[in-house]
């Protein structure tokens, strides 16, 4: 589904991501772990298109996307959330989700004046779908509230809702557990499972190893910008090199 080969990104003289090659198979929940500064978020930015690689290839469902702009990647079925979510604060929860719907005629300059009925019908269909997603993510009560009033955990759910509105096939989650209270975390885990059962694949960056162990079939470990180890979570967390990287990073 997602194929990285030799992906490299330099900032000045430093290699943030250094020759990472990995394969994310379809229909799986894959984990990406590693100490702080390992390059996980940079790798996410490269996959989602916020950054372009210095070298290497990124293929999504066979298509080379290494230099495609982020909005095209979103249209191809690639969604991402952020470690620290930043919704469109001035918009309502519903608007935040609606604007992610793909191929909206109403976003074209003339359609609103030339075909108002078609735009209105499309908007009604999108609102129905957006409300379903918002309800599914337990935000139904807040649909009309401005996104600025949401708690950190609710913002994570809102980001996921926005991503789902674009009907993604692969979702990149950047630390879904960070800063989320335990009750809401259970909701998030349960929803990820449910979406996975519906056929969406996930790549998750996470420090919470419990969440990784519960959700992910395979885990990749990064350290110092390189891929260190790959395998099932229980094997990887016992790997001597991985333990060394974490302890070394802490010391």
């Amino acid at each position: 589904m997602l194929e990285l080969s030799g992906v490299t990104r330099r900032f000045g003289g430093a290699w943030a991501v250094d020759g990472v090659s990995l394969h994310i198979p379809p229909g799986r929940i894959t984990g990406l772990i590693g100490p702080n500064g390992a390059g996980k978020t940079t790798l996410f930015n490269l996959i989602a298109g916020s950054l372009r690689p210095t070298a290497g290839a990124i293929r999504f469902e066979g298509r080379d996307i290494a230099h495609a702009p982020p909005h095209r990647r979103a249209a191809l079925g690639l969604g991402r959330t952020f470690q620290i979510p930043r919704p469109f604060a001035a918009m309502t929860v519903l608007e935040n989700v609606l604007l992610a719907a793909l191929h909206q005629r109403g976003e074209r300059a003339f359609a609103n004046w030339l075909a108002p009925r078609a735009v209105a019908a499309e908007e009604r269909r999108n609102i129905v779908r957006a409300r379903e997603i918002i309800d599914f993510l337990a935000l139904g009560r807040l649909a009309a509230a401005p996104a600025s009033v949401l708690s950190g955990g609710q913002r994570k759910l809102l980001e996921l809702a926005r991503v789902l509105m674009a009907e993604p096939r692969l979702v990149l989650l950047d630390e879904p557990a960070a800063g989320v209270n335990p009750t809401l975390l259970e909701t998030i885990i349960e929803r990820i499972r449910e979406l996975h059962a519906r056929g969406i694949s996930f790549l998750i960056v996470e420090h919470n190893l419990d969440l990784v162990a519960r959700l992910c079939g395979e885990v990749h470990v990064m350290a110092g910008g390189r891929l260190l180890a790959s395998g099932p979570p229980e094997a990887v967390t016992r790997d001597a090199r991985v333990i060394e990287a974490y302890l070394g990073g802490a010391a």
């Binding site: 989602a48 298109g49 916020s50 702009p69 982020p70 909005h71 979103a74 249209a75 969604g79 991402r80 930043r86 469109f88 604060a89 001035a90 918009m91 604007l99 992610a100 793909l102 976003e107 926005r162 674009a166």
Partner: peptide, 12 residues
Amino acid sequence: ENPDLARLAGID
């Protein structure tokens, strides 16, 4: 409000 986030949300 946020051009980078808009791009990620699929807006050109």
